[in-house]
């Protein structure tokens, strides 16, 4: 295993952020860590990165993980290239090797621009490139595609695929289920500090997904009914959507929420 957490508990004062988490990722796997805001995803990632110590339980990590935290962390006055150098130096990686990441993250033409003058998506790509500058065996990406434009999203997804293809284990937190389907990633669903489901997409769909109709009424209420029937809807319905068995409906069944909420 490239990452193995066993019985990990983490509290912030009274608040329990992780409540006995067992979580492991083998080499070459991509695991999407899903869960509503506040579920404990960032806490789990920080523990795996060695930034936080668990209150109990054990953590084992292969090598020095590469971390892209949820919030963008770059040196705004330095150029894109210099940002990569700065972290390459910390890891004892040559500048030339660090600059190989310019291309996959679509940064080649921006290499000499100060990072502070990049767009949000460009900064996000640099931020993610920094995480992998030393070719880590474990890559931790905390919401790498949050608010990202299409180009950024596809560059990051391609990079994730490439890294896993080279044998790295990738843990990836996100709210976007289509992305996970596109990557064919394994899924772990975290809610209130516990992993409530995990497996491949197919396993999750087979185990938890059912067809649903989501109905929105004029007064803003929403209701979900099992099945696919749209018969017998009253005049007070403004919208009705059939959700076929999918990652989305599995997520809904497990958390009672849509993934984007």
């Amino acid at each position: 295993m490239s990452l193995a957490l066993t019985g990990v508990v983490k509290r912030y004062g009274e608040r329990v952020a992780l409540d006995g988490v067992d979580f492991s990722v083998p080499a070459g796997a991509v695991v999407a860590l899903l869960g509503p805001n506040g579920a404990g995803k960032s806490t789990l990632v920080s523990i795996a990165a060695g930034l936080l110590a668990p209150d109990s339980g054990s953590v084992s990590v292969r090598g020095r993980p590469g971390l892209a935290p949820q919030e963008i962390g770059i040196y705004p006055s330095l150029t894109v290239r210099e940002n990569l150098w700065a972290f390459a130096e910390l890891y004892g990686v040559s500048r030339r090797r660090a600059e190989r990441w310019l291309e996959p993250f679509v940064l080649t033409e921006l290499a000499d621009r100060p990072a502070g003058r990049l767009s949000g998506g460009e900064q996000r790509r640099l931020h993610t490139a920094i995480a992998v500058v030393h070719r880590p065996k474990l890559v931790l990406l905390d919401e790498p595609t949050a608010g990202a434009d299409t180009q950024t999203r596809s560059a990051i997804l391609d990079a994730v695929r490439g890294l896993a293809g080279d044998g790295a284990a990738v843990v990836y937190t996100t709210h976007y289920l289509p992305e996970i389907e596109e990557l064919g990633a394994d899924v772990a669903l975290l809610e209130r500090g516990r992993i409530i489901a995990s497996g491949t997409i197919e396993e999750l769909v087979a185990r938890h997904a059912e067809s649903l109709v989501e109905i929105t009424y004029t007064d803003g209420r929403t209701e979900r009914r099992p099945g696919t029937s749209l018969h017998g809807l009253g005049d007070d319905v403004v919208r009705a959507e059939v959700i076929r068995p999918s990652l989305e409906s599995a997520y809904l069944a497990l958390t009672g929420r849509r993934s984007a909420e």
Binding site: A49, P69, G73, F87, L90
Partner: peptide, 11 residues
């Protein structure tokens, strides 16, 4: 700049 945790993560 939020680079502090990254420095720490670099060991």
């Amino acid at each position: 700049w939020r680079t502090w945790p990254r420095l720490r993560a670099a060991g």
